[in-house]
Nucleic acid binder design. Structure first.
Lengths: 208, 208, 208, 208
DNA sequence: ACATACGGGACAGCCCGTTACT
DNA sequence: AGTAACGGGCTGTCCCGTATGT
């Protein structure tokens, strides 16, 4: 008879950690519930107790782990930066650094799951969309309140935020496909130029 | 015994058509070989004769169908457009129109497979990368040879091309997640502004 | 939903019984896992729970059923017989009788699997060898401790034991090929003569 | 378009060579017709032209290759030897030498197929039995006509021949299971002693 | 709360044969 | 004589979910 440590919170957390990791590395469909059971060192029964279906695991991963990852990697840096442009650059820089250290590009956890699951099920779709919305909202807000030179002139902060998220998402997709951080670096530079240029234009416009 | 007419090309083509459609709509892992057999109206033996493994189907789909789709939707419009900016806008416009007519956003076939398969297998990864490379190369070339006002001043056409591809890819990911064409429209507008702005800057720079 | 009673041991045993029977009658490769599922009256899931692979079934059959059969048919009779020669004759006699009653010669379960699987996989090979070793060891031991007239003079009990096992195995192979018990009877007689002769020789030798 | 060399005899022979080799190494059921096609460098259609079914290949292998192998390894040496005992020892010696050089024990081609196929199909069974019968007949004949000292006294040459074949077959089975030539050497020694002893007994008997 | 046993049904891949075609 | 396309069906494995047991 094996010993057992009743600690539901810890077990739930371990499951989510393992599942988040597996979903990002191998994808949702390529990860079996048995993989999670094995890697988390638990039993099928325990998994079922906390998550009755595989779908419920994925939803929890999106809501509790992926959303957190987006917050850590994007929302916090952007909010705490001096300007929106700096926040965006910081986010890119941090992610690129991590990538170069790791050596392998697993892609953006949100985009990976978004592409794989959005078409599968409306529950997945809306869960994913919520995270995207929070992400865009944070950037939008920063763009709106950014009092740095000229950026106030940005016509549509929401659209710009969408654009930033899209550029990053696509850059990460290219990075994953090429297994290089180069596309991310390129896009970071392009975005930097654009945001500066926009500001410059705007300030120039105002000066006249 | 029924009569039979050998027509390997047609059968192969039908398999690829069905598989390309299924992989885009439901994804690679959510499509079973039996689905393909059923939808293509063939037998398991015939499928195995032409494609011994599911992976070989996906590789052929990427190389022969997805690459073609990218060519039709991006490379041809860009090459035949007057300017790079116009070509890019045309590509966005066509795709967005199709999306709005269809009502459902299935995502970019290349990005869907890229995100799902790049991490799975190096063969997939390089097949996907080849298509991305062709795509970027076409835009790069157009940017380089574009004699329209000021755009010759683009510092790094390759990087700009990467950025365009990334922005589109990410925009389509957002569109899929939100099941709306709005992100695509936003990003198209942003890109238009940027390319125009860049040109404006450049011409301004030259005037001085 | 039907009610269910968990009884893992019984289910495992039923699987092994069915598999042992099928492997002996039709061979390992000619028995499908579905055959086992059907004949044991279980489900695929249950089979997979107890035996994740077909190989694991065969290994269990060898270790838990074939080894037992060898013990019943050879080791026990030899050990409990008065002399080695008598034990060997008893084993032959019992097996031949069973054969004649059954009418059909399915061969020695150990040799059947040995010939079919030894070259396939080292795990099979060593599992089979273990049973052979136990078989030979029992005969060796009996020959060594046999105080009956003259047999103590057997130069190399181990080699003689090997010879007995080989003669039986080959005789059963001939019996299977001819679907007759005749080869077994012939070999039993030959072995009887030899063991007696050896004893006679030995005792004659000692008398001198 | 590939060139083609019409040479039915050669193709048939190549198929049988490849099949014989594969059947001995891996067994009948573990060898697919596609394996044969690939290893023989032919096409499925060509195989089907010469051998309409897999069974027909096996029957031809038994009748044309395995029978020949038994003739080369046993019948010829026994017939051309001075005495039966010497012929048997020569056969054992040759086979054991080959085994030691090869390093891997694949078993007796006849016994391998006999054990795997005798129970499957009566056609296989009788084909195998024919080869066994020829083998035993050759030894029987030699034992009968052997004018060497004492061996004429062998009571039942046919039974003795059966015994020799059985001992060899079983020894090879043990050799395959242990992947050692040791069992063959042991049994050869035992048989040598027996045949000599029998001769000695007989001549002793006659002397009195 | 957790563990083991089990249900059914799919999964990708492969099998042996046959038929159309050169 | 020989080639390539094709037909069905089956293989071992694995899947996710649930029920029973502690």
């Amino acid at each position: 008879m094996k010993s057992r440590t009743n600690n539901p919170e810890a077990m739930r957390g371990r499951v989510l950690d393992v599942a988040a990791e597996a979903f990002q590395s191998r994808g949702y469909h390529s990860t079996s519930t048995h993989d999670i059971v094995r890697e988390a060192g638990i039993t099928g029964g325990a998994l079922h107790h906390h998550f009755p279906t595989k779908k419920s695991i994925a939803l929890a991963v999106i809501r509790e782990r992926v959303a957190q990852a987006v917050e850590d990697a994007w929302i916090d840096p952007v909010q705490s930066a001096r300007t929106a442009a700096e926040g965006i650059q910081a986010a890119f820089a941090n992610i690129t650094n991590e990538l170069d250290e790791r050596g392998r590009v697993r892609g953006c956890p949100l985009n990976n799951l978004a592409l794989e699951l959005s078409a599968v099920d409306p529950d997945f779709q809306s869960a994913v969309q919520n995270v995207f919305d929070g992400w865009r909202a944070a950037i939008t807000e920063k763009l709106r309140t950014d009092k740095s030179a000229g950026l106030t002139a940005i016509a549509d902060p929401e659209e710009t935020a969408t654009f930033v998220v899209a550029a990053y998402s696509g850059a990460m997709a290219l990075a994953k496909a090429s297994q290089t951080s180069a596309p991310l670096k390129s896009c970071a530079r392009q975005l930097a130029t654009i945001l500066r240029a926009t500001g410059a234009n705007a300030s120039r416009a105002r000066k006249r």
